[in-house]
Design a protein around this nucleic acid. Structure first.
Length: 620
RNA sequence: GCCCCGGUAGCUCAGUCUGGAUAGAGCAGCGGUCUUCUAAACCGCAGGUCGCAGGUUCGACUCCUGCCCGGGGCGCCA
């Protein structure tokens, strides 16, 4: 199947002309540099190849452009180029032929919106969501879930095999603390395991952490400055109590590690309560994170000793100040990766190495993508380098899998500080979704009072979620962004609702057309596309960018490239909608052609929003 | 101290990967457009030392060096 993407097609035609014109003199890295035109009045696409080529060959760029133009075969694609299509220092402007444009759109419609099956499907592992036991999801989990899910969907859409991994924080001393506290409560009758909820668990977790935190510094200060026997006694009691709680937590961790049934049963219950709520929120967020994607830290517990022994025996890791570390200076990282504490305990880096090993060796990953906060950047640079050094990222063909940290910035409040509640707590994700939906419902009540209440409720849910996800996905993920309900739910602007509105108008036209017995028929019976008006052409050229955009999202792990595209598409449709009557078109042929254009635009919008995990509505 | 990320219009952001034509959107401001497929839309006007300074280049928001500002990180927490 030939590509439906004019950029691809023109790239091949130009590359052929370049080889033809310059033969062996052609630099190996010579690129046709095809892109949609920056000057639509001059052409649809442009090649900037002549300038770098002129530099490499030490010749005049306009002359190079002319030689390229002379050998360029654009038959069946574009109008022939001549002197008049060469502009400025050597830009070559190309205008698609009308019939080629229609044919490419036919192809887009027939061939999965132009998405070609990959020559070799890759296995892609996406680490996403990343919740912790006994903690509610908060804003920090929004991005890990939404971005991770979008990247997983993008890769799946392109035909790759995707494994989602919810790397649940369900192991280690903090988890033992809360487990111990819950067991305590069960024994003394203050906790009913069956009635226990996540909000209770979170409270218990915090209390347990406080209880284990010995105020040694305070005690030292009291002793040093002689702050009196009362203060001394209080602090001594605090420290003694904390030490005792800590000792019990450590004992509980040992019990977990040796699978002591009672302890494990309580821990399992805590995990299930946490996971149930996490998965419910993911469902509400329309993020595909389900039970089967759970791969908690606890599932690596049995592997860690083996990993550490393996690395030590092969000399990959060595002892430093009592700890076992992988030195990374030879790969340009000053900080060593600690994989075993001097007390023998393992660290989260140890688990991450085991994770890379499992994902590449067992799951067969060609790429592993981590949708994790940017503050973990150094950690992942170290872990990736350590894993490669250990050979854990090695694929059967001997090359290393691509390990990618899709780092994202912090969500900020209006004060430009990390988004918190008034009291300084993390904002619960469920509260955030509730508020977005409530605000959407208010907007709908004002805007569309004619809709039945039930429909308004359904729309509010979809629009609220769409607004939040679009806002999160539409800026460069590396950057921090300021969370603002008013802006993301605004009636106007670059928002989720804007895209949904474009789709609503398309669906409305298609409904009305169907009422008149008109359908944008497929296959042989379908009407010919007649791309005449400027607005039709702009819309058509935008549609053709879709497959290339998807590919670039997958390559860069940057979903905002897709939101930018969809916004362009919705904008091109809005102009088309304004200027080009569909049902009232001048002729039946034009009406049929425009109806197909509407249907195709609707399909691409639906597909793109689906790739981002953004829900849609039929009316608004 | 070292490392990473960011700095583009009054505000919020694209564009930087791979240098290329007068740097683009949205919001806010001003002015237009609904007897016609949903005006949550569209059109126009106005708004810019692309943090600063050098350098490379025919050409720099884009690449290189230094600096300034903001955020984050840096051996036994996860």
């Amino acid at each position: 199947m030939a590509s439906q993407d004019p950029v691809q097609i023109l790239r091949e035609r130009f590359a052929a002309a370049m080889r033809d014109a310059f033969g062996d003199a052609l630099p190996a890295d010579a690129d046709p540099l095809i892109s949609p035109s920056r000057q639509p009045e001059l052409g649809d696409y442009q090649s900037n190849a002549a300038m770098p080529l002129a530099k490499a060959l030490g010749r005049n760029p306009r002359q190079i452009a002319q030689e390229l133009a002379a050998r360029l075969d654009l038959s069946g694609v574009a109008e022939p180029v001549s002197e008049k299509n060469i502009a400025g220092p050597g830009f070559i402007n190309v205008r698609l032929s009308t019939d080629a444009l229609a044919r490419l759109l036919d192809g887009l419609e027939d061939h999965d919106l132009g998405v070609e099956r990959p020559a070799r499907a890759q296995t892609v592992v996406v680490d996403l969501c990343g919740v912790n036991l006994a903690k509610q999801m908060h804003v920090g989990h929004l991005r890990a879930t939404v971005i991770g899910d979008a990247l997983a969907r993008t890769n799946a859409r392109l035909g790759h095999t995707v494994h989602r991994q919810n790397h649940l924080g369900d192991w280690g001393l903090p988890i033992a603390m809360v487990t111990d506290a819950v067991m305590d409560g069960v024994r003394n009758g203050t906790i009913d395991l069956n009635a226990l909820r996540l909000s209770d668990l979170e409270r218990i977790y915090r209390a347990a952490q406080r209880a284990c935190d010995a105020d040694e510094k305070g005690l030292d200060a009291v002793k040093r400055y002689g702050l009196g026997p009362k203060a001394l006694a209080e602090l001594e009691e605090q420290v003694a109590g904390a030490n005792e709680r800590m000792a019990r937590a450590k004992a509980t961790l040992l019990n977990l590690q040796r699978h002591e049934p009672e302890t494990v049963a309580v821990w399992r219950r805590i995990a299930q309560i946490t996971l149930d709520e996490c998965l419910a929120i993911c469902r509400r967020l329309q993020a595909n994170v389900a039970e089967e994607h759970t791969a908690g830290e606890s599932t690596y517990a049995e592997e860690l000793a083996g990993v550490v022994a393996d690395l030590e025996s092969r000399g990959v890791a060595s002892v430093s100040d009592g700890a076992l570390v992988i030195d990374l200076k030879d790969v340009g990282i000053a900080e060593p990766l600690l994989i075993r504490k001097s007390d023998g305990g393992f660290l989260y880096a140890t688990t991450d190495l085991a994770g890379i090993r499992r994902r590449v060796q067992k799951l067969g990953a060609d790429r592993v993508i981590y949708a994790v906060d940017a503050r973990q950047s150094l950690h992942f640079r170290q872990a990736f380098a350590g894993a490669k050094k250990a050979g854990y990222a090695r694929r059967p063909d001997g090359s290393d899998a691509a390990l990618i940290h899709a780092a994202f910035g912090t969500i900020l409040g209006e004060d430009n500080r990390p988004f918190k509640t008034r009291s300084g707590d993390n904002v619960k994700l469920s509260d955030l979704l509730d508020e977005a939906v409530a605000r959407a419902e208010a907007a709908i009540a004002e805007r569309s009072p004619e809709l039945p209440a039930e429909q308004r409720r359904i729309n509010a849910e979809a629009i609220g979620i769409a607004a939040i996800k679009y806002a999160d996905l539409s800026s460069d993920r590396a950057k921090d962004y300021v969370f603002n309900f008013d802006r993301m739910l605004a009636f106007e602007g670059d928002t989720g609702p804007y895209l949904l509105y474009a789709l609503v108008r398309i669906r409305s036209i298609l409904r009305k057309a169907a009422e008149q017995g008109l359908t944008p028929a497929d296959g042989a019976a379908r009407a010919a596309l007649r791309i005449g008006a400027k607005e039709e052409k702009d819309l058509a050229l935008t549609l053709l960018r879709y497959p290339g955009t998807l590919q670039s999202v997958a390559d860069s792990c940057e979903p905002h490239r897709l939101t930018n595209f969809l916004h362009d598409l919705a904008g091109a449709f809005a102009v088309f909608f304004r200027e080009c009557p569909v049902l009232q078109a001048e002729t039946p042929e034009m009406r049929a052609s425009r109806l197909r254009l509407c249907a195709l635009t609707g399909r691409v919008l639906e597909d793109g929003l689906g790739v981002l995990g953004i829900p849609t509505v039929d009316r608004m």
